[in-house]
Simulated scan of single mutants.
Amino acid sequence: MMANNEVTLANVAGHFRLEGEVSSIKAYGDGHINRTYLVTTDRKRYILQKMNTNVFPDTENLMRNIELVTSYLHSKGKETLDIVRTDDGATYYADATGAWRIYAFIEHTISYNMVPDAEVFRDAGAAFGDFQNELASFDASQLKETVAHFHDTPSRFLDFKAALAQDREGRVSGCREEIRFFVDQADWYPKITDGLSNGSIPLRVTHNDTKLNNILMDATTHKARAIIDLDTIMPGSMLYDFGDSIRFGASTALEDERDLDKVHFSTELFKAYARGFLGEVKPSITDGELRLMPESAIIMTLECGMRFLADYLSGDTYFATSYPEHNLVRCRTQIKLVREMERKLEDSHRIIDEVMKELG
């Protein structure tokens, strides 16, 4: 006899156009936001997800964004997520248990939670650069903002100050040094949003969550095959994607490393990623974007760090945590990275100049 959860999952899967008979549905992956399951039939494998409608309340436009972008990429011959339709042709199914979607499983792939070497990170840069390049001619205005102010760093700072003022869990007194750090960095926050507002930075289709583990690499060649986790596909700046990639991938440690002596900003990894990324976007990147590439890494790291700290102050309601100080630990790794990024800012600008000269 199946447990209640298994019955629910089997019933949900039954509303989609799957090939073959379902033989198993098992929890899969380690994502923080959606609940993910691997569905196996006698013919194929699929990814079933229960979408987090608290984080992404606008399910209709979220799936519309994904459908528009994946259809466009498919039309250009790119490997990407393949949405499995429901019996009535919809992109997702909703009932009393939640909102559900299914993608075809992309076989013979792997992903990394941390950069294993510079070559893999260069390939990651090329993958996200190619993603940007392929979508450069896509009309970003077709997409809806499904999470308001997602990478609007000044808005995130206001959220942070609201969490600080409320001090819902009484945690402010234990992290005053971290709080002071983000308050003192406020001059950084509007640099990208101001550029979008005044037109010096173009509006583009952006992934907005460019962690290394959102690239599926071929299990044999280790070359990038597909960009996944498209929930945050929205109009934005190329700098969001570049900066967040550096934040995550040019660190020598995981973002929840307790030992800060292990956390460093690697200019070697920065250069590797820049080579891959710029090699793809060179035909379309603007001078305004180029000038802010090193700064974008600082801004995205500051934004992520203050989000971790705001969530800690608010009782850990957004990011999944494994222990009470988990978000505070994450915040501290971001602070350490920002400090090193600031010290090495001139080096980073020199690297961008060198890479552009190499590319000709």
Rank of each mutant, 00 (worst) to 15 (best):
A104V: 10
F105S: 03
F105C: 04
I106S: 00
H108L: 03
T109K: 05
T109L: 09
T109H: 06
I110S: 02
I110V: 15
I110Y: 03
I110L: 13
I110E: 12
S111G: 01
Y112W: 08
Y112E: 04
Y112C: 05
Y112M: 06
Y112I: 01
M114L: 14
M114T: 12
M114G: 14
V115N: 04
V115H: 06
P116W: 02
P116T: 07
A118K: 13
F121V: 09
F121P: 13
F121L: 13
R122H: 04
D123E: 09
A124G: 04
A124H: 03
A124Q: 00
A126I: 06
A126M: 09
F128G: 02
F128H: 01
G129R: 05
G129D: 09
F131E: 07
F131I: 05
N133R: 15
N133D: 10
E134D: 08
L135P: 00
A136K: 04
A136V: 03
A136S: 14
F138Y: 08
D139K: 08
A140M: 05
S141G: 12
Q142G: 11
L143Y: 02
K144T: 13
T146Q: 00
T146L: 04
V147L: 09
V147Q: 00
A148I: 09
A148W: 01
A148G: 12
H149E: 13
H149Y: 06
H151E: 06
H151D: 07
D152Y: 04
D152Q: 00
T153D: 12
P154L: 05
R156Q: 02
F157N: 07
F157G: 08
F157K: 14
F157V: 10
F157L: 15
L158K: 15
D159V: 15
A162L: 15
A163N: 08
L164G: 12
L164F: 14
A165I: 12
A165P: 09
A165R: 14
A165N: 14
Q166T: 08
Q166N: 13
R168Y: 05
R168F: 02
E169N: 08
E169V: 14
G170V: 06
G170E: 07
G170T: 07
G170L: 01
G170N: 09
R171V: 08
R171K: 15
S173H: 08
S173W: 00
S173R: 11
S173V: 11
G174R: 11
G174D: 10
C175L: 01
C175W: 03
C175Q: 07
E177P: 06
I179T: 07
I179E: 00
F181K: 01
F181H: 07
F181W: 04
F181G: 06
F181L: 04
F182R: 10
V183P: 05
V183L: 13
Q185A: 15
Q185V: 12
A186P: 14
W188E: 12
P190Y: 03
P190C: 13
K191T: 15
I192T: 10
I192L: 14
D194G: 11
D194H: 15
G195Q: 06
L196C: 11
S197P: 01
S197L: 12
